[in-house]
Design a protein around this nucleic acid. Structure first.
Lengths: 346, 346
DNA sequence: CTGAAAGCGCTTACAG
DNA sequence: CTGAAAGCGCTTACAG
């Protein structure tokens, strides 16, 4: 392949200066119609692909893209409807600002390279629900780019966007307990960034690294305390698929005494609970009450419809993008509301 | 804010040349441990954020990101499970190659700017299921970047990745017809990039711009012809949500004679048909047979489970990324297989 | 309205 | 192992 075409080539062919040719692309109204026509004609003849965005970005000092660093692996994130809705919100806000969205690959145990984070061409980064102490967070901080932390503890100098996880969890647990349930099972997706699966003991609970799980559990526990219930079983499913939820539900429902209610930390898990209940021939909500968290679109479509905690995932994404595009990190975390949605499953 | 820190500042502080400092970041094994330590210490003292990726990209001639241009609006794309699975496949392949994934905002009627496409810092572009003649495709072509067209007609000089839409559609329609159905209704998401909704007449069919719809319809029609059925009603839902499917199903089921089978172009729509059938108290498959296309994970979980056409969405994404990362566009389209999955809904 | 000139921050053959 | 030098392709104040 021959040398790449540059603006210089176009300018020479059109018989104008390089700066004039540049203006044709960046400020077309600034140049005369005649000059514009000459340059565009020369560009078309040479099949010039337009000014190189990398060079333009370097000169302008602006990349034109927002980076998003997602919960552990991207594959996991795309399998999680809540994460996808969040991304949808970012994308919509970015589209309005004519800004592209760059998904940064998160380093994994298999592939611990941070090069993609270090080399990504972005003007800012949205970090979504990373566990405590994840090395990717450090790598982002070193870039010293504007950053918005979402569903994570605040850090100095960065904007933080949260939802009221504790309050929402409290509300849904209190709702279940108000219906008289004393034998409640809790179902979590993941408490820490490993593959642990099974009933969580005190030691495990002391080592939770996923902030969202920690906050939601705190809300459940407050409601339980207020109802005089000291300890309930908590099953950790090691994942957030419907199947993970079904697996966890089977374990919880095998306990003696059998729980009469299962409160799940996500709607995905709660959907699995409904599946397991159907398998076992348990009537919901007659023999088993089920509640989730997130109010995914699916939650209204299950049989029976799922009691859950509403949060506006798309709005959260849009707000995250807005915080980044506006610059000026607010000193205090922005906290979006949650709201109990009682449906047929409780 | 003060002037931005550069590698030059670090080099000066460390008392070495700029090139040596650069090697510390790019080829650390090339320099002595002593020099490395000096440079890293200076960088830490100055809080140097690392070499600027934009400048490095310009010099290297490589951006380190793949662009994805998605079906019309990004918000639509994220609401479509099939598109999300496809993206998941791209992301996984990109992660292995340590390449970020940039989602390009697609110009809309409201915001026809092509600047995001023109300015995006990417090494290649995957274009997914754009309607015929969409201006974004032109803008991509002008960039003269390596391009992979997915679920779109081949274009000279670009790689093309398809699935056997026509064959899959034929198989599922033939399966339904083999069960003796003569009154079949067809349900489409969108035939062209507008908001048209309703029964499609010949004039509308002649103006389809979504290739996938065209190919699937061709498959249905071949099966119908072979079974001696001349014409069937086709309802266009103007969207691909479960609710769109329910709306379309209500219209089809209000026809005289009432269809005994509905074949939907997507699983999302077919799920809506199941919903509408439940509302109307129609037994599936006893009074109404239902079939979809895509074999989403949800398709196996509906009640009854959905007969559909399987395609490997994640694998398709991975293959698209592979075609782009490998360079060398194959002259012929790569066509992935589809497979009928008969379940309880027919 | 047009153009000469400076500079964005880095990487990498090349010479020593 | 280290450094001087060239150059990636562009934009934009500035002067005319």
């Amino acid at each position: 392949m021959a040398r790449r075409l540059t603006l210089q080539d176009v300018a020479k062919r059109a018989g104008v200066s390089r700066s004039s040719a540049s203006y044709v692309y960046t400020q077309p109204e600034r140049v005369s119609a005649e000059l514009r026509a000459k340059v565009l004609a020369a560009a078309a003849e040479l099949r010039y692909p337009g000014p190189d965005p990398v060079a333009a970005s370097l000169r302008r000092g602006r990349a034109g893209a927002l980076g998003v660093l997602f919960t552990e692996s991207l594959a996991f994130a795309f399998a999680d409807p809540a994460a996808v809705l969040f991304l949808q919100g970012i994308a919509a806000a970015g589209q309005r600002a004519d800004t592209a969205l760059t998904l940064l690959p998160v380093p994994t145990t298999f592939d611990p390279a941070l090069t993609a984070i270090r080399n990504s061409v972005v003007d800012g980064v949205i970090v979504y629900s990373l566990p405590d102490g994840h090395p990717a967070l450090q790598a982002v901080a070193e870039r010293r780019l504007p950053t918005v932390l979402v569903d994570m503890p605040p850090a100095p100098g960065t904007a933080t966007l949260l939802i009221d996880d504790e309050g929402g969890a409290y509300a849904v647990a209190a709702h279940v307990l108000a219906r008289g349930h004393r034998h409640v099972g809790l179902l979590a997706d993941r408490l820490a960034a490993d593959d642990a699966r099974g009933f969580a003991d005190a030691r495990r609970l002391a080592r939770m690294t996923f902030p969202v799980s920690r906050w939601r559990l705190a809300g459940y526990e407050r409601a339980l305390r207020e109802h005089g219930i000291a300890a309930v079983p908590l099953y950790e499913a090691a994942g957030n698929s419907v199947q993970d939820g079904a697996t966890g539900a089977r374990e919880l429902l095998a306990l003696e005494p059998r729980p009469t209610a299962i409160v799940a930390m996500t709607d995905q898990l709660a959907r699995g609970v409904l599946l397991a209940a159907a398998e076992l021939g348990l009537d919901v909500p007659g023999e088993l009450a089920v509640a989730g968290f997130d109010d995914l679109p699916e939650a209204a479509l299950t049989v029976p419809p799922l009691t859950t905690v509403h949060q506006d995932h798309v709005g959260k994404g849009a707000e995250a993008a807005r915080l980044l595009l506006e610059g000026e990190a607010p000193p205090e975390p922005v906290v979006l509301p949650t709201r109990l949605v009682a449906r047929g499953s409780t």
